[in-house]
């Protein structure tokens, strides 16, 4: 027995190591997600029997104007979220000084990152309130009336995204500060000798060294944008009249409030397809350098 084990442990042990994690993840996450794709071919109210309808849910979905509103909002989220990495970098550049007390101040900047999105949503709903909100207060100082951001079908998504950017920028800030701490001092010194300063230095010497951090910041930001759900649910419930829904929220709404689990599953599947593109890109970039060295 022990002989057998000894002979095979080079592959048995790793298999045993990876099994619990792989099984758990495989069953609870991967299989469940695949099952959702299966459910999307059924008409199902979540309680009664499931009825096979083939592609009918998808046909309805592509004819549903709400679907295109959600899709458009996902694009807005994606585009606006692209601001998070540069803003995070800018903040990081501002904060990257070794002065007494800076450490504490820096960590205060990270606080939004650890807040629950429910909290962020509640806080920003209060900021935007057209009668009592902080925004209306600020507009009031200039004698103007604040727009009711969460009531305006054209502005609402932007307002929600700005709230969501708060923790996202904090996240990028943490990454970039870490990156800046890891810069190669020799290269910076060489740059300084060559007379590079300010923006040129940033562009030609610093940023190239931050490539990996930037990639992670970008990838996590993109995927965060596509996954957006909590903020929409807490701040607007997709309103006014569905103008701020995103795919994730529309899926939830259709399943939970309209009892259309099959249809909701179809939306989830489409969202999955969109995300798969980005996930594939991320994985490719992540794995490519290793392939080259391998």
């Amino acid at each position: 027995m022990s002989h057998l084990w000894r002979r095979h442990r080079h592959w048995l042990a790793p298999t045993l190591f990876i099994l619990p994690g792989a099984l758990l993840f495989g069953v609870v996450i991967i299989l469940a997600s695949i099952e959702t794709i299966w459910v999307s071919f059924f008409d199902w109210d979540g309680v009664g029997p499931m009825q096979w309808v083939g592609l009918a849910n998808y046909e309805q979905l592509f004819a549903d104007p709400q679907f295109y509103v959600s899709l458009k909002n996902n694009v807005i989220w994606l585009a606006m979220f692209m601001l998070a990495p540069p803003l995070g970098l800018a903040l990081a550049l501002l904060l990257n000084q070794a002065i007494a007390g800076m450490k504490f101040l820096k960590s205060l900047f990270f606080v939004p990152l650890v807040l629950a999105s429910v909290t962020v949503g509640v806080v920003f709903t209060w900021v935007y309130d057209p009668t009592f909100g902080l925004l209306s207060l600020i507009y009031g100082w200039f004698g103007a009336t604040a727009p009711a951001l969460l009531s305006d079908e054209h502005l609402v998504s932007f307002a929600v995204v700005i709230a969501a950017l708060w923790p996202q920028v904090a996240f990028c800030l943490v990454l970039f500060l870490a990156g800046l701490n890891n810069l190669n001092e020799d290269l910076i010194g060489a740059g300084r000798v060559d007379g590079a300063r300010g923006f040129a230095m940033l562009l030609h010497v610093v940023l190239p060294q931050l490539r990996e951090v930037s990639f992670i910041a970008l990838a996590v930001t993109i995927i965060g944008a596509l996954r957006s759900f909590d903020m929409v649910a807490v701040m607007t419930s997709g309103g006014p009249f569905g103008s701020s829904t995103v795919l994730a929220y529309q899926m939830y709404e259709q399943s939970i409030f309209s009892y259309r689990f099959g249809y909701g599953a179809a939306i989830a599947t489409v969202l999955f397809a969109v995300m798969a593109v980005f996930i594939a890109w991320y994985l490719r970039t992540l794995l490519r350098p290793e392939q080259e060295t391998a």
Partner: peptide
């Protein structure tokens, strides 16, 4: 996204 595995 969490929603995709909600039902199963």
């Amino acid at each position: 996204p969490a929603q995709i595995m909600m039902i199963p």
